[in-house]
Write a protein that binds this DNA or RNA. Structure first.
Lengths: 68, 68
DNA sequence: GCCGAAAGAGTAATTTATTGCACTATGAAA
DNA sequence: TTTCATAGTGCAATAAATTACTCTTTCGGC
């Protein structure tokens, strides 16, 4: 999963562990572990709950052909 | 779901109907219908498949406090 | 109003995500 | 090396998403 690294890094920056992230977000610890290792295909709701705690959000972007 | 309107509008702009979007994306028609009406909680994979056909993509953004 | 195309909805079957539990692995500090 | 905290995994149960089928609802053109 493409968001694994971002979540992991951001969590690290904020200085919280997986357990805390699970508690605060309400998402199961097991699920967070799976997402961070790249396994799993979370729902928008699940992913958003996690990102929210990390001060991030999901947005759509219109693809552009490489800007240089 | 927050992406319903964006998907619907973008599909309209591109001039394709739900059936076409389903065929091209490989996502079931029923699922697309549900997403567009705001029901349902699609997985990243499902949502990405749809967005991809529409020339869009999912990205994470770090929340900023209102920039006036 | 009528008609046909497109969109929305109820139900049920199947697949998949989510979760907890117990266990292993990693890594840093003592 | 031992210890402790954090991270990753196998398995099984539960909850939820995905899907097809069928039907109803909209809505624009005639």
């Amino acid at each position: 999963m493409k968001f694994a690294k971002q979540i992991k890094e951001r969590r690290s920056v904020l200085g919280i562990n997986q357990q805390d992230l699970a508690d605060i977000s309400g998402v199961g610890l097991r699920t967070i572990k799976q997402i961070e290792v790249g396994k799993g295909n979370p729902s928008i709701k699940t992913l958003s709950a996690i990102l929210d705690v990390l001060g991030m959000e999901l947005v759509t972007k219109i693809k552009t052909t490489s800007e240089l």
